[in-house]
Design a protein around this nucleic acid. Structure first.
Length: 570
RNA sequence: CGGGGCGUGGCUCAGCCUGGUAGAGCGCCUGGUUCGGGACCAGGAGGCCGGAGGUUCGAAUCCUCUCGCCCCGACCA
């Protein structure tokens, strides 16, 4: 394509509203323009990149036998009511009424639609397995759209759904997807980690997320560079850092100590001249089992944080919240800051890091007093479970290898759904014995914009974006230094023509601009390779530049084609 | 939903406190000189100052309401 005819509205100045790199650069480089909060228009460059990402996805999905559908984005309320998500999705769902006042919504994801299709048509185990997918716009009324394309209200998602006769079948479909996803992200040229994820409320048995490490992300993951362990922080397990001072081994009884004005773990530790690891942290929580709400204690070592996900899993509750100060006063007769487990009648969950500890310090349930010599299991009884969040400095459970915490953005998620939708919506087939059985499902998503954003977040510098060649809007740009010079112009057009003939996605910067402007623009939008046709053309020499790392070299014009092909593996 | 910030030409922003007929740089158009990392000179176009109401002789500026956008927190299959 000829740049002079294209709409690539690059900005010299940094747009005021953009904070994260991908947002700022996609705006500046003329990929996108905002329409509203969390709503964007994708211009030429974004559309080309997104199309290339989708092409990769389609090829790899087809390679595992997946079939592409195009589904209704506008959904009747009924199917969502059947699955229970009409209410379950809450405010995040865009809802509307038609002229007859019938309830409709815009699809946020397509488990319901896919299941509705399947239950009408799949009748026999002979038709299984099936993998169906779509690449379509999803709508979510996010409470807070942010960070450019990272969290938006309308976005392109590839999602596929597998239907199998039994769990081993699902394992196969799941594994196919895992491998396909690795190929997809590898081919898109981005670095990622695959982490164990919480399958939580969805009730599935396994789930993994594909994450890109970036400060723009919203998730944390725990990785071990030595063993390859990787898990979402919500789910990660670890060996905690060793305690800072050994426990006394004597058989001592709890004894009160006056701790005036010492409320927080920090303050109590400082007052008693003990490390935080010798203290027990006591949380009072109200656990919601749906039918009833129960106050409980959650105990942690002084330096640890409660993991919300693990605590919910341990208690088997729907959700929980911190108790209000009034509730605490009522139950304990003391204020937060002096609470502890001794003598408490409530159910107590204690983190496994407290198991086997002796003579620790806990609140006395009496304002301004703590107890010394509190031994878990002796001075109070508790259910021990891993309910703490991994922190940096922890080590891998079996190997003792160091763990690292990374901030990441989720680009893909694979999930063993199980029977949730086939049960709720009545999807069953006849098995070999002629018996009706529920179909077991999996669901697998990729955020297309997030792949683009991930690439920009990972590969950018002061000059702009450095796109991976496979998903760059163009592979090569040919830049004649002066379009007014007929010999330069002709050589550039010839080279451009040859590249196109060779199947290379080339762009010719035929604009009547100064060279500096063209170089800056090419760097900004992130075209991986540039061929500059300039003065040395007289000697048959042109300059080739790799955007990533700014590697410049000169070579005879006659060698350019093979250089480009080699760089692009074509 | 709680907290903070911002709406002035296409972009970045000044002007607002202390009311008096709207500015700069970049971009855009015309002509000329230029041409290897966002050129220079000259001329020019372009803004009901987010919207509504109020105060005032007079409002971008003060007051009230409202809409929109960004950021932090809460939330996030």
């Amino acid at each position: 394509m000829l740049w002079s005819h294209l709409f690539i509205p690059t900005l010299r100045e940094v747009p005021a509203d953009a904070e994260v790199a991908s947002h700022r650069l996609l705006l500046r480089a003329g990929y996108i323009r905002p329409m509203g909060s969390g709503i964007y228009n994708y211009l030429l460059l974004a559309q080309r990149s997104m199309s290339k990402i989708q092409k990769v996805i389609r090829e790899e999905m087809e390679a595992i036998g997946a079939q592409e559908f195009h589904l209704a984005a506008l959904n009747p309320a009924e199917i969502w009511q059947e699955s229970g998500r009409w209410t379950g999705m809450g405010q995040n769902m865009f809802r509307l009424k038609d002229r007859w006042q019938r309830d409709l919504c815009l699809g946020m994801t397509h488990e319901e639609v896919m299941t509705a299709i399947a239950r009408g048509e799949l009748r026999s185990y002979k038709q299984l397995p099936q993998i169906w997918y779509q690449i379509q716009t999803k709508f979510r009324d996010e409470p807070r759209p942010k960070s450019g394309l990272l969290r938006v209200r309308q976005f392109l998602m590839k999602d596929s759904y597998s239907f199998d006769i039994d769990a081993p079948g699902l394992d196969v479909s799941y594994e196919k997807h895992r491998q396909a996803y690795c190929k997809i992200f590898d081919r898109c040229g981005i670095e990622y980690v695959v982490v164990e994820a919480d399958s939580g409320a969805m009730g599935g048995s396994a789930s993994q997320e594909f994450m890109v490490a970036t400060d723009a992300g919203e998730d944390f993951v725990v990785v071990c560079r030595e063993t390859g362990y990787a898990a979402n922080l919500e789910k990660a397990v670890s060996e905690p850092k060793p305690i800072a001072a050994p426990d006394s081994e004597e058989a001592l009884d709890p004894s009160e100590i006056h701790t005036p004005a010492a409320k927080t773990i920090d303050e109590v530790a400082a007052f008693l001249k003990l490390p935080e690891t010798s203290l027990i942290k006591t949380y009072v929580v109200i656990v919601d089992y749906g039918t009833k709400q129960v106050p409980m204690l959650a105990l942690l070592r002084g330096n640890h944080q409660l993991s919300e996900t693990k605590f919910i899993a341990a208690t088997g509750c729907k959700e929980y919240r911190a108790a209000h100060p009034e509730e605490i006063r009522e139950i304990f007769g003391a204020d937060p800051g002096s609470l502890g487990p001794v003598g408490v009648k409530l159910t107590i969950y204690a983190d496994s890091a407290l198991e086997g500890r002796k003579n620790m310090v806990a609140g006395a349930n009496k304002d301004d007093y703590h107890l010394l010599n509190v031994t878990p299991g002796e001075d109070f009884t508790a259910k021990f479970a891993d309910i703490r969040q991994v922190e940096s400095g922890d080590t891998e459970i079996n190997t003792g290898a160091p763990l690292e915490i990374l901030k990441t953005m989720e680009i893909g998620h694979i999930f063993k759904l199980g029977y949730k939708y086939s049960k709720a919506m009545g999807l069953d087939v006849l098995n070999e014995d002629g018996k009706e059985v529920k179909v077991i499902m999996g669901s697998y998503g990729i955020g297309v914009e997030r792949v683009l954003c991930g690439a920009v977040e990972l590969y950018n510098d002061a000059d702009g974006i450095s796109m991976p060649p496979s998903i760059a809007p163009f592979e090569v740009v040919v830049t004649p230094v002066n379009i007014g010079d007929e010999s330069l112009k002709k050589a550039a057009f010839d080279l451009y023509g040859d590249l196109k003939k060779a199947g290379i996605d080339a762009l010719l910067d035929d604009r009547d601009e100064r060279p500096g402007v063209k170089f800056k623009d090419a760097d900004l939008i992130g075209i991986p390779f540039r061929i500059t046709v300039g003065k040395k053309l007289a000697q048959g020499i042109v300059e080739v530049v790799e955007r990533r790392g700014k590697v410049l070299s000169e070579m005879p014009l006659t060698e350019v084609m093979s250089w480009v092909k080699a760089k692009l593996n074509k």
